[in-house]
């Protein structure tokens, strides 16, 4: 348990490496790392912070429960945040305007925080609904990045865009596999209890 706490603390403070100009520059000048390392990192940090909060001040979570019936708010937030940061113009503007960058960091972190707080209250069907949505979103954006004949972001090279497209499709495929697995488990369990 103690070790889990230490991991959670590490993940919580991990995104602070983005304060180092060199690290941030390295990550954000590469589309692949920007979308598939920075975003998940911020998301996980938020989630880890939520886990820490629950274990040390679990009582405060009831406030969230009041506005997050069975995790519906968390799911809405996660889907909105991830969809917004798939827009090429959002990516570019987050690199050119400090305000947009701040919104990006805050929104991904907050989405992770919210989802971790409501994960246990969520029904399995709702979780699968969320995974399914993310799956088609990443899949379609990924294929769009690949079929586009021009650069969609002024800040990224064409090759980088193609590679990110392939990686996003890869993520979508993994999510689909996870979804199938969970659906299979779910039907086995409900079948056993019925």
């Amino acid at each position: 348990m103690k070790r889990a706490g230490a991991y959670a603390a590490c993940f919580t403070i991990l995104p602070s490496v983005l304060f180092l100009d060199g690290v941030r520059h390295f990550i954000e000048t590469r589309m692949l790392l920007h979308m598939l390392l920075e975003f998940p990192l911020l998301f996980l940090s938020g989630a880890a912070a939520a886990a820490l909060m629950v274990s040390y001040a679990g009582g405060t979570a009831w406030v969230i429960e009041k506005i997050d019936y069975r995790g519906l708010t968390a799911i809405t937030l996660v889907l909105c945040v991830s969809a917004y940061w798939m827009i090429p113009a959002s990516l570019d503007n987050s690199l050119l305007q400090p305000g947009v960058a701040l919104a990006k960091y805050a929104s991904w972190w907050f989405a992770g925080w919210m989802l971790a707080l409501s994960w246990r209250r969520m029904s399995e069907v709702l979780r699968m609904f969320m995974l399914g949505n993310l799956c088609w979103m990443f899949g379609s954006v990924g294929s769009l990045f690949q079929v586009s004949e021009s650069r969609l972001c002024v800040n990224y090279l064409f090759g980088d865009q193609q590679m990110t497209g392939r990686a996003l499709v890869g993520v979508a495929v993994s999510l689909a596999a996870l979804l199938i697995y969970r659906a299979h488990e779910y039907s086995r369990r409900t079948g056993a209890t019925a």
């Binding site: 009041k66 506005i67 997050d68 019936y69 519906l72 708010t73 809405t76 937030l77 909105c80 969809a83 917004y84 827009i87 090429p88 113009a89 959002s90 570019d92 503007n93 050119l96 969609l152 972001c153 002024v154 800040n155």
Partner: peptide, 29 residues
Amino acid sequence: NTTCVCAVLAGAFVFAVFEQTSGLENWTF
């Protein structure tokens, strides 16, 4: 409460996307 918060979130999302893309017109910088 949840319905209200979700409606606000969805509204904010639609507003932000409209702002960013100038009415779903410009998706790239």
